[in-house]
């Protein structure tokens, strides 16, 4: 008796197939892990793809030192649970210059994330890196291939992308070139949430509403995750108020806007997402840097 596979089953099967192709055809893959919900789903799929073996590659977090404390806690636990080696990389240049989102604006993302990622990939000699990006996130992502080639200097050229037919992926590359692989390309935000629910995947508690210390900065609402450091960098302590907040997306604490919310369970979070009237990345400051083509420009420079 044939049963029609559900959309989640098909998405899962596709992601697993992609991961197995990478492991079979590349020399040294790594999974980039940002501790967000997409990363959590990607890691879960990796466990499934290779079970009963542990995923045959390390997890790597390109850190900015400005992530939420809850994220750092889950990062260690998730890697241990999966039986994977966790690599944490911080751009030493950004560290020594004390680059932070308040004083340095776009340079913060460029140095910690874009340059940090390039340095980390070069340091370990990874030739393939899994990333949790989805095509529904942003316009230029909609056209990116699942296997996205980068030159030896990590550049992306949208005009010379390889055609990608059926599920026959061309993984060949010259020495020094690398591939960014996006196994979640065809997932949407709703798919991710449904899968988190169905598979009971552990995610950072910040996605759920709770009373948290907040401050307002340049018109946005942020969480005071580390007030002492905030005061140190800003030179003063902004007014901190307890509010019931949560996050739709997680990045650096001073760059990720909170939303006031009462959604404290998974289904309430999904409910809020479905009824919401603004898109997911809206809370992120990073996309607005250079107007409309911001993300495309970042990717050409090597941002994931």
């Amino acid at each position: 008796m044939t049963r029609t596979l559900t959309h989640l089953e098909r998405l899962e099967a596709e992601s697993i197939h992609i991961m197995r192709e990478v492991v079979s055809e590349t020399a040294k893959p790594v999974m980039l892990y940002s501790v967000g919900k997409d990363s959590a789903v990607m890691l879960h799929l990796a466990k499934k793809a290779f079970y009963p073996s542990p995923p045959p590659f390390p997890l790597m977090h390109v850190d900015t030192t400005w992530k939420f404390k809850d994220m750092y806690a889950l990062r260690e636990k998730a890697a241990a649970d999966a039986g994977m080696n966790l690599l944490v990389y911080r751009n030493p240049d950004a560290e020594s210059r004390g680059i932070n989102p308040f004083d340095h604006g776009p340079l913060h993302t460029d140095m910690w994330k874009t340059q940090g990622l390039k340095q980390a990939l070069d340091k370990y000699g990874f030739d393939a890196a899994f990333g949790g990006a989805r095509r529904d996130e942003e316009k230029s992502r909609a056209k990116e291939r699942i296997f996205s080639f980068r030159t030896a200097s990590h550049g992306w050229d949208p005009k010379s992308q390889r055609p990608e037919l059926w599920n026959a992926y061309n993984t060949r590359k010259a020495k020094g070139e690398s591939i960014r692989v996006f196994p979640l390309s065809n997932w949407t935000e709703l798919d991710i949430w449904q899968y988190v629910m169905a598979e009971q995947i552990e995610i950072v508690p910040l996605y759920f509403s709770a009373k948290r210390p907040t401050y307002e900065w340049e018109g946005g609402l942020f969480m005071a995750d580390d007030p002492a450091r905030l005061e140190q960098v800003l030179g003063y302590l902004p007014e901190i108020t307890e509010r019931s907040i949560r996050f739709r997306t997680l990045g650096c604490s001073p760059l990720t806007g909170a939303v006031e919310s009462e959604a404290a369970t998974l289904s309430e979070v999904v409910q809020e997402m479905l009824l919401t009237t603004t898109s997911e990345r809206q809370g992120r400051v990073i996309d607005k840097d250079d107007g409309d083509a911001s993300m495309e420009k970042k990717k050409q420079e090597g941002y994931f």
């Binding site: 559900t6 959309h7 989640l8 709703l190 409910q271």
Partner: peptide, 18 residues
């Protein structure tokens, strides 16, 4: 349905095909 019974809505959406 989303507003009044999110769990019923999600149950309905869990078994979509593609």
């Amino acid at each position: 349905l989303i507003a009044e019974d999110i769990d019923a809505y999600l149950a309905a959406h869990q078994n979509k095909s593609m």
